[in-house]
Design a protein around this nucleic acid. Structure first.
Lengths: 205, 205
DNA sequence: ACCTGAACACCGTTCAAGT
DNA sequence: ACCTGAACACCGTTCAAGT
């Protein structure tokens, strides 16, 4: 048996609290310490700095999407890519305030490598695989920016709110005005899937 | 003639200084005030808060890309979209540290509306136009995250650095290992253009 | 209206000292 | 090794008072 002082928490418990705080709109070292019952300085025995916490959080969220959807050998490659991307979007849109931090962390953790390897199995042209990553992460980033922090309302509600808020001068922006209904639906699952399928079709051609 | 007290600076001068600070890696109200020769509190007569400065900066940077490239009637629509997107990428990659803030500001300013209207003229299907926006902004966001802050080195140098830094276990990640050379080139202009052309092809099909 | 000086309520990080 | 208490060097924003 080991002796001596022990951590009062697992690093995972610190990350749990960090995710709750980032969702609520303010991840600070002081708030995080208070949440887990420590002094701010004590956090630095768990993680070297705040950026390391954000990186660990990014990898953990990425790991919550179901990778088996991408690896399922019984389905066609593009269908697997679409299914996994939809699941990743579902996971990340539960934590919109964390998305910018995740984009910044640049997906370099251990889980990200596994996802990349599986994506290359489904789409062996590395350039094409990157284009898919760009579309998927770009779409999620734009939606997350729109959602802001806190609880994300149901999709239908968000689209309706966009429709109501979207009013431009028909004289100056005729096409934008005419397309307002479609523009409100940009953040819908249907638009995400349609765009991804079109992107994949272009890359396979 | 108007009388009374006058602003000692134009709001544009404040934004100039703000852009320099964000490029250098730290836009703070205090640093900004010092740069323009004011007290921090005085900035609040120019902009209501820090977020308003970032939004104004986003719209201003968007305005630096040459919209005529998108509107030029003598060229084919897709060629115009590619030319404008390349110019936008060039402008934003001069200020990589500003890109996350710009994504967050969600492109809602007056210039963004004009760009959207012109994009719809070139690509009337609003869903397709949004998919193009997603690809272009997503690609720029991922490249900017990689570049970090400060001066961005020439592209060839950045690709070489990525190639040197990129080493994964060939046993665990065979496809990633085999594609390392291509993965290093993800941030190249050629990859950006190739991906955009494939995306456009898929959307037109 | 514009600006200063000063304050309020915060930050991330470090570090001597304790166990 | 883990943690506290206290400090250091910062933040964004507000506001009475001056011009």
């Amino acid at each position: 048996m080991k002796r001596g002082p022990q951590r009062s928490l697992e690093p995972q418990a610190v990350l749990d609290a960090a995710l709750e705080l980032i969702d609520a709109g303010g991840l600070t070292m002081r708030a995080l310490a208070a949440r887990v019952g420590l002094t701010p300085g004590a956090l630095y025995t768990y993680f070297p700095d705040r950026a390391a916490i954000v990186s660990a959080l990014a990898d953990r969220l990425l790991g919550e999407a179901d990778l088996r959807l991408l690896e399922d050998r019984d389905r066609e490659a593009d269908a697997r890519i679409v299914a996994y991307s939809l699941d990743l979007r579902r996971v990340l849109m539960r934590h919109p305030a964390a998305v910018p931090a995740i984009l910044g962390a640049a997906f370099q953790g251990p889980v990200a490598l596994r996802v990349g390897e599986s994506l290359l199995a489904a789409l062996p042209d590395a350039r094409a695989a990157y284009a898919v990553m760009v579309y998927v992460l770009g779409a999620i980033a734009l939606e997350a920016a729109e959602a802001g922090e806190g609880e994300v309302p149901p999709e239908a509600e968000r689209v309706a709110a966009r429709r109501a808020a979207f009013a431009v001068d028909p004289g100056e922006f005729p096409r934008t005005h005419a397309a307002a209904g479609q523009i409100a639906a940009y953040i819908s699952t249907e638009q995400f899937r349609w765009g991804l399928e079109r992107v994949l079709a272009g890359l396979r051609a």
